[in-house]
Write a protein that binds this DNA or RNA. Sequence first.
DNA 1: GTGAAAGCGCTAACAC
DNA 2: GTGTTAGCGCTTTCAC
Lengths: 343, 343
Amino acid sequence: MNKQYTMEDVAKISGVSLSTVSRVLTNSAKVSKTKKSLVLKAVKELDYNINSLASNLASNKSKEIAVIIPDITNPFFAEVFKGIDDIISADNNHYSIMLCNTNFSRSKEKKYIEHIIKKRVEGVIVVSTDLSEELVNNIKRKTSIISIETFLKGVDMVDITNELAMFEATEYLISNGHKKIAFFGWQSGVHSLNQRMEGYKNALEKHNIPLKDNYLVNCGFTQAEVYIAAVNFMESKDIPTAIIAINDNTAISIMVAFEKIGVKIPEDISLIGFDNIVISRIVSPKLTTVAQPSYYMGETAAELLINKINKNRNQRDKETEEIPKRIILPTKLIIRGSVKKIF
Amino acid sequence: MNKQYTMEDVAKISGVSLSTVSRVLTNSAKVSKTKKSLVLKAVKELDYNINSLASNLASNKSKEIAVIIPDITNPFFAEVFKGIDDIISADNNHYSIMLCNTNFSRSKEKKYIEHIIKKRVEGVIVVSTDLSEELVNNIKRKTSIISIETFLKGVDMVDITNELAMFEATEYLISNGHKKIAFFGWQSGVHSLNQRMEGYKNALEKHNIPLKDNYLVNCGFTQAEVYIAAVNFMESKDIPTAIIAINDNTAISIMVAFEKIGVKIPEDISLIGFDNIVISRIVSPKLTTVAQPSYYMGETAAELLINKINKNRNQRDKETEEIPKRIILPTKLIIRGSVKKIF
DNA sequence: GTGAAAGCGCTAACAC
DNA sequence: GTGTTAGCGCTTTCAC
């Protein structure tokens, strides 16, 4: 690696002052054509690049935003991230993105947030991660924050109609003759997931179907956990005619398990997922599921964040505790082949 | 957002010098127990967080690494990223990761690299992206670099046995009686993909099967492109008995297309993919494919990078152009249900 | 337009 | 152990 030059070097070579170099490189003020070209020539000659470490300190802007996400390996989250990225790294903004992949680990979350605060990251987007109120307040005191699909107290949020979606999915099952419907999910405290379970419960209630504890399966979220839970579940005496999975990943793990043990979908049991990830229309049978606008959610959150950053910059220290915004985007039930009509 | 305090504030409140505060907060030297607790108390009281913008400038370390990746939405890349992340954000290192998702766009690549250099990012891992020699040299002059599955001149690399893998996959097809074998890929210039095609060609040659131009399908990499290419291909007069796809994503897009137009796999035509992404064992029929150690590749590259960073720090300016390392990890043909034995 | 100079908030000698 | 001080490489007044 070569030595890195400084603005002073550029200034010397081009015969102008340090501040003129700065002006040229940041377009922060008018500079005569002659000097400008002199500077640019020197920059080229030295292969000089401005040092953001220094400029960020001087201007007190990190030009960085963070995305906290549970698992970038989950296609739904990856899609959300892409939406965020396409806005954030658009030409006009000069932000870079620090990706914080938590693997659902509390300690990783905490560590990342420390990092975020120390780095003076200008804003953070939290995706489906139910940070503690303490952590949220901690972040809010230091930077801007938007959440996606998680309710965080006092935080602007991009959400979908989780409850309604699951309500409709459950009703769809009921309208197909199902009365024995299990729910595969897990206790996470995550808002969106709770909402989904609520939708399921409310639909049952509306149709006077009693909620059964043994139909509420806490199956974990790794493929292995779901697999085991699914196999065990089918060994019980009280087997339902349909299963709703909290998301497609879970549904697909169930499918894998069922195939192994010879349970046929939808002949033996019907199945509905949530997310409409790419795989869901490739598996056999194709999965009936709920589509959510993942990419668009990312975009929306990123736009909100940029606005918020700009606004906060102008009113630092002012006590303006506004009512948090909440943007709710629609979902759609995608009917495919994993539900059987029964009588 | 609150005002952010500085070390000086902490020093004042705790009644010690600024440097003592620094020592406590960075563990960089011994401090007496009394003063240490005084400092810690003040830190807590002010809810103080060290400003990395400043400390990074002073110590000339950005504590950041970058990952350049074509498409985080591709499960293979996501898995590689996870391997990287688990090493990089391990407890001992205090790095954060800037994710550069290029979407295969040259202009985005270039922009990200500018960012990387300006930010004085300490190291970069390039995943399956064939940067121009100019860009590579540009990076090499300013920071440390490791590549995954791409040959970049003079750059250490974590690779797999791409050519051998495809050679074996093709031979497997041949041993199942196939002589008419098409290859779905695209001209990318990316090393790993070229290698794969070479493996295909070499296997044909070894078995005296002439290479046919119309069997070399340049199908693009988006799902839509592959879909169209697959449909068009099946309308031609010279249809093969088997197809090798350059990766699983492509193979699966082909499957989707074939299902639509009623072509049965493997009855009508056999198919082999590459990557062994999660979906490949869920689709129907299960896809015969080549497994590569994606997570482990990420880990390996990250470890190499950390070592390189530490080494480079100690020998900046020294002209030590070593022979680039190349770590080659093994692949494995995973035989499932998408290939039919013919006679 | 342009340059000089005073920071930004730290780290890292250096002296004690 | 501890404090003083000189940077790190920029941005941003301020004066001309």
